[in-house]
Design a protein around this nucleic acid. Structure first.
Length: 565
RNA sequence: CGGGGCGUAGCGCAGAUGGUUAGCGCGCUUGCCUUGGGAGCAAGAGGUCCCCGGUUCAAGUCCGGGCGCCCCGACCA
């Protein structure tokens, strides 16, 4: 491609509303343009990168026996009612106004629909079906350029198995394929245990890229390798104590004390004997949640403990009506018509202090066994930096990360709901056992740029660079330079080396160099008057800045060597 | 969905207390000139000042409403 006619609109200045380097650079280098919030147009250069990423994904999915589909983005709304996900997704699902259709945010339903009609026997299994397709999600807040959009490209695949062992195998195949895909795309990444969320299922893992801009927080142990999303992460923090003797309950006057810290200070006691009460509504019913001290509640854990459904913090007014007290004075003792669950750290503890359900009063010496009717203990707390690792005791680290892939063992949630069954060896009807696996294509591109850029621009890995070579002619007033450059361009093309050629006659050398660094092709081949005098051509490595001079006749050979092709 | 910010030329922005013909840099067009790190000179083109309504002799500017975009939070399959 020649820049004299190619559409590569580069920008000298950063777009004002971009924060992340990848967002700025994708726009400045002419890869994408915003159309609306969370909606981007891919321009030729960006689309070329996307196609390379998709090709890598395709090759690795094919290698594990995946079969590529192309499923419709428009789905009948009934399909989504069958699995109740129309309700579960809520406003996130785009609905079509003039037909009973929705824009699919993912494709478990369609896969099940096909499987239901065509998978009849255990002999038809296993299957791995995948597609690379545009997904639609009405995100409440798109952000970070292409990283969270309302429309995005996703590789989604689905495994269909006759047994749980089969699912394990399909899951493992995907895990290995994903490792290869991200490695080939030149990403530094890691895996964490993750929450299955509303997708359901028994287990899931996420592929993560460390980034200060990441929307996820993950807990890492540098010693034993423990890694988990904070949505499920646990640590080895000590539980609250159980003293030999439980003191009698005692009401204490605590004027204007609202928070745990204020309470600890007011009573001059450690936070480890204080039980914090939170009230949520679960499917419309109030639930009291007891946490130790200043422990933070993880809503994903709470949702899991409650078995799914809808949860939200209770409104202050309703809280007052139900308990007679305001937040800050709520407690488990004497509370009626509330489901009460507690964090594991509080199990069997005694001599605790919590709210009295009366403003400005707390109750001391609460014994979880004697005074509280607990409906269950669960891990509900957020792990904090420096707490001992659950496996080895080493202090844990907490970092932000961007999720670039997620793999789920779904089980039979969808096949049961949609009656996608098969006959097993004994002629018994069984639901198909499913797995679901996703990769965000734009996120791979954005994360690659996050990890590979400098103050001048992008530094592409050759595996997904739009072009391998950026050919530059400087001193175009010299006909010899133009002639040699043109010939080199033809030669690169003949040799099937992808080349973008800055053949513009009216652009100064400095401008071309800046553009080349911004676009970030792995090698720059520079044809100039001063080097041509000695029959030499300059090759610059974008990543290292290293420059070498080679004889004109050796350029192609040298470039091939440097690109290892 | 809560909180904050912004909306003026393709992009980045300036336009106190309302007051002529709305500016600046970059980019764009034409000409001259220039060619190793985003050159220079000259002449140009380009505007629904986000939209609707109001106040006023007069609104980019003040008031009301709406829309859009960004950021923080909530949510995130």
């Amino acid at each position: 491609m020649k820049l004299s006619w190619g559409f590569v609109p580069t920008l000298k200045e950063d777009p004002s509303d971009a924060i992340m380097p990848s967002h700025k650079l994708m726009i400045r280098a002419g890869l994408v343009r915003p159309l609306a919030a969370g909606i981007y147009s891919f321009l030729p250069l960006g689309w070329k990168v996307a196609k390379k990423v998709m090709q890598i994904i395709r090759e690795e999915m094919d290698a594990i026996g995946g079969q590529e589909f192309h499923l419709p983005a428009l789905n009948p709304i009934e399909l989504w009612e069958e699995t109740e996900r129309l309700r579960d997704f809520g406003d996130v699902i785009f609905r079509i106004k003039n037909r009973p259709l929705v824009l699919a945010p993912t494709h478990e339903e369609v896969i099940c629909h096909i499987a239901k009609h065509h998978i009849k026997s255990y002999k038809d299994l296993p299957q791995i079906w995948y597609q690379i397709q545009t997904k639609f999600r009405n995100e409440p807040r798109p952000r970070s350029g292409v990283i969270r959009g309302r429309q995005f490209i996703m590789k989604d695949s689905y495994s269909l198995d006759a047994s749980w062992e089969g699912l394990d195998k399909s899951y493992e195949l995907h895990k290995q394929a994903y490792i290869k895909i991200y490695t080939r795309c030149g990403l530094k990444f890691f895996m964490v245990g993750a929450s299955t969320g509303a997708m359901g299922g028994s287990a899931s893992e996420e592929f993560m890229v460390e980034s200060q801009y990441g929307e996820d927080t993950v807990v890492l142990c540098d010693k034993c390798g423990y890694a988990a999303n904070t949505e499920i992460a646990q640590s080895n923090v000590p539980p609250a104590k159980r003293y030999p003797e439980s003191q009698p309950l005692k009401e204490i006057y605590t004027p204007n004390v609202r928070t745990i810290n204020e309470l600890a200070q007011f009573l001059n006691v450690p936070t480890e004997i204080l039980a914090k009460s939170l009230v949520y509504k679960h499917n419309g019913q109030p639930v009291l949640i007891l946490m130790l001290g200043n422990d933070q509640l993880v809503e994903a854990k709470l949702l899991k403990a409650l078995g799914g459904g809808e949860i939200s913090p209770i409104e202050p007014e309703e809280l007052k009506n139900l308990t007679g007290a305001n937040a800050g004075s709520i407690g488990p003792v004497g509370l009626k018509n509330f489901k009460i669950i507690a964090d594991n750290r509080l199990k069997d503890a005694n001599n605790l202090i919590s709210g009295a359900n009366k403003d400005d009063y707390h109750i001391a010496n609460i014994d979880m066994l004697r005074d509280v009717k607990v409906d269950g203990y669960f891990d509900l707390r957020k792990v904090e930096e420096g707490e001992p690792c659950i496996n080895c005791g080493n202090p844990l680290r907490i970092i932000n990360a961007i999720e670039i892939g997620h793999i789920f063992k779904l089980g039979t949630k969808y096949s049961e709901a949609m009656k996608a069954t098969f006959l097993d060896e004994n002629g018994q009807e069984k639901p198909i056992i499913m797995g679901s696996y996703g990769i965000g294509v734009e996120r791979i591109i954005a994360c690659h740029i996050e990890q590979n850029h400098d103050e001048n621009g992008i530094i592409w890995d050759k595996s997904i660079a739009p072009y391998q070579v950026h050919l530059i002619s400087v001193n175009t007033e010299n006909p010899k330079v133009v002639e040699v450059s043109d010939k080199l361009y033809e030669k690169f093309n003949a040799e099937k080396i992808e080349v973008i050629y800055d053949d513009r006659l009216d652009v100064s050398p400095g401008f071309k160099f800046k553009d080349a660094d911004l676009l970030g092709m792995p090698l720059q081949v520079i044809v100039s008057e001063r080097n041509l005098k000695n029959n030499q051509i300059e090759i610059k490595v974008r990543k290292t800045g290293e420059r070498i001079l080679v004889n004109l006749e050796e350029v192609i050979t040298e470039v091939k060597k440097m690109l290892e092709i």
